[in-house]
Design a protein around this nucleic acid. Structure first.
Length: 258
DNA sequence: CCGGATGTTCACCT
DNA sequence: GAGGTGAACATCCG
């Protein structure tokens, strides 16, 4: 589930962490730690206080007095604060919250905890992540940068929008929804896009994110329910097309997405 | 049992 | 480096 909208919900839901001091780290799963190990994480973070919580794309940034902790949630990760999930339900993940899936836990001076609960283990924790690997955040990317990206790279439009190095935060569902809203086929080469299309895309992006955030997340798009056999375009009734684009399952309307 | 899943990375091509 | 493809990671769900 987590695309940038969900990570933003996580970030806001984790506000109560600010001001707490870490007294212990449990990192039972070495594989979950990226570019570090349990010893280094523990020695760095124990004694550190949480200053603030940030986000770039799908990466949550927990600023502490000792280091920036990068939290990635993969497909099924969710933070538990004091054993409570920060949002009620995680679509496409398990309905349970098995404590065995707590891949990383920070204990605080007030007795509370932050746990990364992640059944599939596709997320991870990193100290001082390299932010140069991420493009500008999709929510605030400006029109000029988007135009530059379309001129610079020649790939299927969906591939560009999914590439976190080019633009950070959009996932499979949000990209399909954005392309559906703007009438652009996901397979269409970025080099074939005309100015008007890129401007349309740019104009639709932030309002779409605002709207879907208010509705409840990435799975609240207008055509989400039509992802499936015999799904029909809510705009014109055409049968939705399904194919793999950029390695991802993709649905679009063959009539109005060109 | 099998296929697929809202993510990322790496390996291996051209 | 670009650009394309496919696999791998681990687990749950229908």
């Amino acid at each position: 589930m987590p695309e940038l909208l969900e990570i933003e919900m996580y970030r806001r839901g984790a506000a109560s962490l600010v001001g707490r001091t870490i007294v212990d780290i449990e990192a039972p799963d070495d594989w979950y730690l990226k570019n570090t190990n349990a010893h280094a994480v523990t020695s760095t973070l124990v004694g550190a206080t949480i200053d603030s919580l940030g986000r770039i794309g799908k990466l949550m940034l927990m600023e502490t007095t000792a280091a920036t902790v990068g939290l990635r949630f993969g497909m099924t990760g969710i933070p538990l604060i004091d054993d409570e999930p920060v949002i009620e339900e995680l679509e496409y993940s398990s309905k349970r919250l098995d404590p065995n899936w707590n891949r990383f836990v920070a204990r605080f001076d007030d007795g509370g905890t932050l746990a990364m609960n992640d059944p599939r283990r596709l997320g991870g924790v990193e100290l001082d992540p390299d932010l140069s690997k991420l493009g500008p955040d999709a929510w605030t990317i400006d029109q000029g940068h988007l135009l530059w990206l379309f001129g610079r790279y020649k790939v299927p439009t969906k591939v560009l929008l999914l590439n976190q190095k080019r633009i950070a935060g959009l996932g499979n569902l949000l990209v399909d929804e954005l392309l559906w809203r703007t009438g652009i086929a996901p397979t269409r080469a970025t080099s074939d896009a005309d100015l008007d299309e890129v401007l349309r895309l740019s104009a639709a992006l932030a309002p779409m994110l605002d709207e879907l955030y208010a509705r409840g997340g990435s799975n609240c798009g207008d055509h989400f329910s039509e992802r499936g056999a015999h799904g029909r375009c809510p705009a014109d009734g055409s049968e939705m097309v399904h194919a793999t684009v950029g390695g991802r399952s993709t649905w679009w309307c063959p009539t109005h997405q060109l």
